Structure formats: C-alpha cells, structure tokens
Computed example of a mutant assay.
Amino acid sequence: MSAAIRQVISIANSDLTIIEHQGERVVTLAMVDQVHQRPNGTARRNFNANRERFIEGKHLFKICASDFRTHKPDTISNKSHEDVILLTQRGYLLLVKSFTDELSWQVQDMLVDGYFEGQRPAAPPVTQRIAQSRHRLALAKELHRTRDAGLREVIHQQLDEVSRAMGLPTPELESLGRSAPKTPDVLKVFWEALAFLDSKGVAYNHATASNILALNLRELASQLLEHGQPLRFDSALRQTLWQSHSPRCLHKNRTVHSRLSGKSIKCWVFERYSES
C-alpha cells in the first residue's frame, strides 16, 4: 500500500483521502457511504449480502486493520480490529448497482472520472511516441539480424519493456529471426584444435584480412598430427564445417593467395567477428 504524503480529492462535496494499493486506487466501504451520503454501515450491509459475488484481487483487497492504520493513519478508528475491505473500481461499481437514486448516478460518474480514472498518467507527447516507435522497430530489426541465443534474450527483454511502455503487445521471440543452431560436438572439437595450435604459435591461416580464416585442411591435418592432436577430416566433419555459422563458412576449396607462402593455395574460407 502506498505510504505517500496524504492526498485529498473532493467528490460530490465530500473530501476523500486517496488510497492506492498494488498500483491502483481503491476505496473503503466507509468512503462509499460518505460520498453517497448514506447512513454508516450501508455499504458494509450491501457488501455482506452479496459477498459471494466479489472476487479478491479483482473486486477487492483485504487488509489487516493495524497495517492499514500504519500506512493510512486517521482513515479508520483506532478501535476497529476488523479487516479493512478495499474496493477496486470494478468492486465499487459492483457494490453500487443497487444504488439507483439520482445522487448515486451522479456520484458514480464523478468517482470513476475524478478518483479512479484520475490515476492514469497523461499520454506521452507525440515526439516521445515517435521516438519509442523507432526504438521498438530498431530492436525488432536487431533481433532479426542477431543469431546468438543469449544476446537475443537480452534484446527481446528490451523490446518487451518498450512495448509495455507504449501499451502494445510484445512480439514473440520466435517470430523475430532465429537463434544459431547449437554447434555440433565435432565442430567444437575442430575449433578447439585450432585454439591449441594458436597456443603453440603455429601459423595456419593463409588469409591476409584479419576477419577471415583461410585453411588448407590437408596442411592443417599434418600440423595437428605433428603436435600430437590428430584429427580426422572425414566427410562428416567437412559437411559440418560447410554448415558452420560462427565463424561462417564462405567458401570451400577456394584458391587464395597465401600470406604464409606467397603462393596460391586451396583453402576453406571462413568469416569471423573482428576482435576490435
């Protein structure tokens, strides 16, 4: 329950203390009697007579009297020990269905418009809505481009926050591109073997560009065998390499000019992310 500074609003010549619970405005049964100018206990009697129609969490909240007094002092008697019934807007309208006099019709409109609806923030400026729309679109496009599963989750959380702020539904993650497939074990072993050669200072990349890997598989097999890391380059591994997404396989058996030998050589070519 909100413990903010006491706020009072005037409805139908009655001063009502604004009460909020779980982010929405609520009224007590005594407040209903007050604003409708009914004898004390009228709202309580009507509520008890129709208790089965009220759903907790939807139409009402029940709060311990002592807790209520702590957050909203001077709103109920110190002698009261009965749980306090807090009616939501839906609960209030359900309760006053039997109030059909002219004053009650007027009070219902004033209480809904001036009290319950008064909690809603004003719509953001048009420029802010446009900026939010552009940001939401940019996040959606980024999800289409991104294949890393963890990064996609982060971007989708941001998209959800922006969508909620705009009052719009959040697109399903699966509808915005796809995550990269899980790396097969055989491919994982291959890249671990290259990392081993890196640790030994073995030069195997024939490409000149920093974001490109150009690998001659026959030469690579000999280098791995020489350093005690034999790896069989069978058809299964070659097929898996061709389907590799990270690094992405661009060509197989493509002639490149080797930065190592200065000669032409057949290589499998991969594109990897720059480390800069």
Rank of each mutant, 00 (worst) to 15 (best):
A193H: 07
G167N: 08
S133N: 08
R259F: 03
R145K: 14
P169F: 12
N253T: 12
R53A: 14
D109E: 14
D74I: 01
E192L: 13
G57L: 08
E161S: 08
A65D: 06
P125W: 07
E192F: 07
E226R: 09
H245M: 11
K266E: 14
L168S: 07
T70Y: 10
K58V: 12
S66W: 01
E174Q: 12
T42F: 00
S163F: 01
I55K: 03
L217M: 14
S66Y: 04
P124I: 08
S175R: 13
S179V: 10
V107A: 01
H206W: 04
V84T: 09
G177A: 10
R129G: 02
E20T: 14
H251E: 13
V112C: 02
C249M: 15
L213T: 04
N40H: 09
F196E: 03
L139P: 01
S246W: 09
N48Q: 12
I18S: 05
R152D: 08
L176R: 09
L111H: 12
L103G: 00
S14V: 06
W105P: 01
K182M: 11
K200C: 05
V96F: 00
H81N: 12
Q22Y: 12
F233I: 06
G262K: 05
C64A: 15
M31E: 10
I155S: 11
T240C: 14
R145I: 07
P184T: 11
E102A: 00
L94M: 11
D33G: 01
K97F: 01
G201L: 08
Y204L: 03
E275D: 15
E271D: 09
E271L: 14
Q243W: 09
A3S: 09
D83M: 09
Y204V: 04
R178W: 07
I9M: 09
F99E: 08
H59F: 06
R147P: 01
V256E: 09
L86E: 00
E56V: 12
A43F: 01
E153Y: 08
S199V: 02
R238A: 12
S80K: 11
K141H: 13
R51Q: 13
S133D: 06
A30G: 15
V202C: 08
T100F: 00
L139W: 10
T42Q: 03
A214W: 03
Q158W: 03
S222P: 01
S210L: 10
T70C: 11
W105L: 04
T208A: 15
H156D: 05
F99V: 02
V112H: 03
S2G: 13
A123L: 14
T127D: 15
P247E: 12
H206F: 07
A221N: 01
H156Q: 05
